[in-house]
Design a protein around this nucleic acid. Structure first.
Lengths: 86, 86
DNA sequence: GACAATTAACCGCTAAGGCGGTAATAATAT
DNA sequence: ATATTATTACCGCCTTAGCGGTTAATTGTC
């Protein structure tokens, strides 16, 4: 039950963030304060802006208990190697 | 078999990107050209820089067939609502 | 209705991402 | 050994993300 993120689905992603924020009973300013970012970037994310910096996004997602992950057909092969650290 | 992304695992994330690039037989400049980004940002990603812009990252991940997704305990509830558009 | 809180949508400013260029080192051929 | 290619790690330039401030519109709540 994950949601994919790409340039075309940024609007949908913004809706996901907004849903989680409202479920947490937070205003945009409230979320921004807890996450340690500005109120503007919360507005931007919820409106589908795609040029958000990753570190900024991770602060917001972390605050809302949303995890971000990557996957690919080669991931099994990668994990089988000696790269994994956990 | 997914890999989680957060501020602490950016180094690991960089290694994942590098693994996929090498499996594709691409140099950094080659990947950058195909993805439509500069060579510097490939270098930065592979070195664990966390302030990459999301749109830039998505271009690179898309080229390497790596998908980015979000998940959370509330995702089921979200999907059950009338938000879904796919 | 009145009131408070939230959101929308701008603004100017500062810090930094992303760009190509470059040069020095490292790796991989022939 | 000698080319060729790739990587590292810097630089200056331009663009823009992200910031707080602000005002109007919206959304509750009493």
């Amino acid at each position: 039950m994950t949601a994919n993120i790409n340039i075309e689905t940024m609007q949908e992603f913004g809706a996901i963030v907004q849903f989680h924020r409202k479920q947490a009973g937070l205003s945009r300013v409230g979320l921004a304060d807890i996450a340690g970012v500005g109120k503007t970037v919360i507005y931007d994310i919820e409106n589908g802006k795609d040029s958000i910096r990753l570190n900024t996004l991770l602060k917001v997602l972390g605050t809302l208990n949303i995890s971000l992950s990557v996957n690919s057909p080669l991931m099994d092969q990668y994990k089988a190697g000696d790269h994994a650290q956990g």
